[in-house]
């Protein structure tokens, strides 16, 4: 097991995410799925745009606000290989729109609603991601 694993902050962070989903649902009647909120901007009608932007702005503002409030810079270790970043981004963007959701829409909200589609989607993207990591890390061994 990884040595800096902290179950309490993971649970608390998860509770905040669940609360955010509950607030967006009880307040606006919308599912807190990030790919849908973002991708939906492409086809949203007038009156359906502003809330999406407000939500996304709040999300983007959160880490800098934490820093301003005296928090420490969150650790972000991400590959710097442009090819991987671009391939990954394209697949994530296209795949989440085609599949109707991502980790938040299917993984958190969909599972919480007991949606059959979301259970299947979550199982599939988890399995595909784990397989990809296995191939890249252990078979090709190119990246850590």
């Amino acid at each position: 097991m990884i040595h800096d694993f902290s179950p309490i902050s993971a649970l608390l962070g998860g509770i905040a995410i669940g609360l955010a989903a509950a607030v967006l649902w009880s307040g606006l009647g919308r599912i807190a799925g990030i790919s849908g909120i973002l991708g939906g901007l492409a086809t949203a009608r007038r009156g359906d745009i502003a809330w999406r932007i407000a939500f996304l702005l709040g999300m983007i503002a959160a880490p800098p606000l934490l820093l301003l409030a005296g928090g420490s810079m969150p650790t972000i270790t991400v590959t710097s290989a442009p090819g991987l970043l671009i391939a990954g981004g394209l697949l994530v963007g296209f795949g989440t729109r085609l599949g109707g959701g991502c980790t938040s829409g299917h993984g958190v909200c969909g599972l919480a609603r007991g949606s059959r589609r979301s259970i299947v989607a979550t199982a599939l993207f988890m399995a595909a991601a784990a397989t990809t990591v296995f191939l890249v890390r252990h078979l090709i061994g190119a990246l850590s």
């Binding site: 990030i34 790919s35 973002l38 996304l56 999300m59 983007i60 959160a62 880490p63 991400v78 590959t79 991987l84 970043l85 391939a87 990954g88 981004g89 394209l90 697949l91 994530v92 963007g93 296209f94 795949g95 989440t96 729109r97 085609l98 599949g99 109707g100 991502c102 980790t103 938040s104 299917h106 589609r117 299947v120 989607a121 979550t122 599939l124 993207f125 988890m126 399995a127 595909a128 991601a129 784990a130 397989t131 990809t132 990591v133 890249v136």
Partner: peptide
């Protein structure tokens, strides 16, 4: 669409480790 989309998304997620929420945040 659901099946293909979820698999494509999973591959991209596994390549980098970012899904839409964390990447935007």
């Amino acid at each position: 669409s659901l099946v293909a989309g979820a698999i494509l998304f999973g591959i991209g997620w596994g390549l980098v480790g970012y899904c839409p929420g964390p990447a935007l945040a």
